[in-house]
Design a protein around this nucleic acid. Sequence first.
DNA 1: GCCAACGTTGGC
DNA 2: GCCAACGTTGGC
Length: 147
Amino acid sequence: MKSEPSDVSIDDLASMPGQNVAWYGVRNYQARNFMRDQMRVGDGVFFYHSSCEQPGIAGIAEVSKLAYPDATQFDPGSKYFDSKAAPQNPRWFNVDVRFVRKTRLIGIKELRDYPDLATMRILQKGNRLSITPVDPSEWNFIMGILQ
DNA sequence: GCCAACGTTGGC
DNA sequence: GCCAACGTTGGC
């Protein structure tokens, strides 16, 4: 899951109440579907810093709450407000994510250098999705290089 | 700030 | 339903 550290960094997550955050504000259908349809409580998450000086994996988190309607879509004062969404018919969903631990920064260049990660979704050309699935083999490989 | 890539919008 | 125009993302 990508986050701009100027918005929410891994350190920010670690200092939040319960070290937990609602992953609100996703307004892309594919990313929404990954949260709503595929993410389950306890699933591991790589916390990726994007749009910053050192893009890359900065820590590990886990899904702490199953997807539910994103409250900001109903809030006219929010920049994520969606006038076409209704509480009876929500359009956007988010999971909650809980801090597990920080890691060393694994930069995007390093990630690209591992042949084992050549097909990792987040590294594909043109990928802009803020949430992408991680194969178990990719998860295990990255956990391995963190040893 | 540039720009490739891609999603969304809206006229037809 | 097509597709041009536009907006956004995000690494560099």
